[in-house]
Nucleic acid binder design. Structure first.
Length: 458
RNA sequence: GUGGAUGUAGUUCAGUAGGUUAGAACGCCUGAUUGUGGUUCAGGAGGUCGUCGGUUCGAGUCCGAUCUUCCACCCCA
């Protein structure tokens, strides 16, 4: 038989024990925060019908969907004509009807639409599951990664946005990750700007370009806008707005004075005002939260407030983001259901924390005591002691094979097990056990009860 | 999807202008120590040089394709 070279599909990873300990640390903090804020757990299948996924993420998104080949004789029903075989677009729907989920929000919308009569609204759910994108991997960019989503659907109250902002701060505080900024903006302002410039239809295109400001700088952004045939007046207007400095009050005042012509923009300004009012009503509420009028976010379904967390001082994309979408479940036959949500990117949070060395003391779950295995005669006695230790809630294990003691002690060393219990024929005869302290190198003879008492004391 | 870089023992890396049996460190295994580890000493195992093909008397080294990882673009968590 040929051996197969073990390998992973591109962009996917194993998570070894030491990594899992750290990932679980992050996950537990996020999950605890979600539950504290009243979100309920939900899971959906890894795969969805392509009809659910397609067309929700733009043309780019459709390309990045992993499609699942129909099972069985997938060629049986394919049109028997050459055009079908040569055209990817024609062939694909005939051989694939399912795909791996691309995010958690669309499956959530599907779930809400399907179960609308049983759900109590407003519905707050959290969901922590992997998603898949057929992207080209880089650092901080994987083809399989986890999203940790929390969404509220069935209310348009800005309290939800404010709560999300507070939740975000709580999570990063608990993680010990301080170098970040929560940027917020409102799509209505951006649309108002586009509208007032007479380019309302091109708003989406404008968002995508504007989102690059961070990366390419103002100068290149202006060039790009020009190349894309946006009016010179429009560009000048944009420049004035996105180069505004000062706090959110200052920026909002400016917008209000200059955007009064646009009902849309005024609404957006009002929403941001209210959002900040909520935060300001709390002590320390607006720390690390800033209004960034150039924040656009790519996803096409956002309609109101948008939020994004950027790690500062580490070269990596955003580590979380979200926003309000007015009509997400509409395509599934449930119109007028407004929702707002946020997603933590745990894989990137992990990378950032690793890079900033914030995982100093996260040890593997440690066994406290290892019982050596001398020979088949003492094995049963050892097995009974093992059971007693565990009944006393002491983390213990018995070495499964009667190999050399040197080897067993070595195992304890490598696993960083602090105590080893020697149980050989002498101990068996006396009905005791010898406890070795691996750090001090000392050894003492104890009764089982004395051992349990000692272990519980340590 | 487009362009660029990369790939040698388990790991990190050497490998000189194509030229015998591809090296080091760490790790691993065995022994010194047949019921006592972490140190030390002695010995040992482990490589189809990412994969496939080509040039050559001869390829780890040159060429092509392909895959992985990384970087830029696109997009995004």
């Amino acid at each position: 038989m040929n051996t197969i070279k073990p390998a992973l599909p591109r962009g996917t990873r194993d998570f070894p024990p030491d990594v899992m300990v750290k990932r679980n640390f992050i996950l537990n903090i996020i999950r605890a925060a979600f539950e504290k804020y009243g979100f309920l757990p939900l899971e959906t299948p890894a795969m969805e019908n392509l009809s659910v996924l397609s067309g929700k993420y733009g043309d780019e998104g459709d390309q990045l969907l992993f499609k699942i080949l129909n099972s069985g004789d997938f060629m049986a029903k394919v049109d028997n004509d050459e055009k079908t075989f040569l055209d990817y677009g024609k062939l694909t729907p005939q051989i694939s009807e399912k795909g791996l989920r691309y995010d958690l929000t669309v499956p959530f919308a599907r779930y809400v639409a399907m179960n609308q009569h049983d759900i109590v609204f407003p519905f707050k759910r959290y969901q922590i599951q992997p998603v898949w994108r057929a992207d080209r991997p880089q650092k901080g960019r994987y083809r399989e990664f986890f999203q940790c989503d929390a969404d509220v659907i069935g209310t348009d109250s800005l309290l939800c946005e404010a709560e999300i902002a507070i939740l975000v701060h709580e999570v990063f505080h608990n993680l010990g990750l301080r170098d970040y900024v929560l940027k917020v903006n409102n799509r209505k302002i951006l649309e108002g700007i586009a509208e007032s410039a007479g380019d309302k239809k091109r708003a989406g295109e404008f968002f995508v370009l504007l989102d690059k400001l961070d990366k390419i700088g103002l100068h290149h952004l202006k060039e790009l806008l020009e190349e894309n045939r946006f009016h010179r007046d429009f560009i000048a207007r944009i420049e004035r707005i996105i180069t505004l400095t000062g706090d959110h009050q200052h920026k909002l005042d400016f917008l209000e004075r200059n955007m009064s012509g646009s009902e849309m923009a005024r609404e957006g300004v009002g929403e941001i005002r209210k959002f900040f009012e909520y935060l300001e009503s709390l002590e320390d509420g607006i720390k690390q939260t800033e209004l960034d009028i150039s924040l656009a976010r790519g996803l096409s379904y956002y309609t109101g407030m948008i939020l994004e967390v950027k790690a500062t001082g580490v070269r990596i994309g955003s580590i979380g983001g979200g926003g309000r979408y007015d009509n997400l479940a509409g395509v599934f036959g449930l119109p007028g259901m407004s929702g707002v949500g946020f997603s933590f990117g745990i894989d990137r949070i992990f990378d950032v924390m690793e890079e900033l060395n914030l995982f100093s003391d996260h040890n593997l779950p440690a066994t406290k005591i290892l019982i050596t295995n001398f020979d088949p005669e003492t094995e049963k006695y050892a097995f009974q002691i093992l059971s007693k230790l565990r009944r006393a809630d002491i983390r213990a294990e018995l070495f499964p094979d009667p190999v050399k003691i040197k080897k067993q002690l070595n195992y304890a060393n490598k696993r960083e097990i602090p105590f080893v219990l020697m149980i050989g024929s002498e101990e068996l005869k006396k009905g005791v056990c010898s406890l070795k302290d691996m750090n001090r190198g000392e050894q003492e003879e104890l009764t089982i009860d004395a051992l349990i008492e000692k272990m519980n004391r340590i």
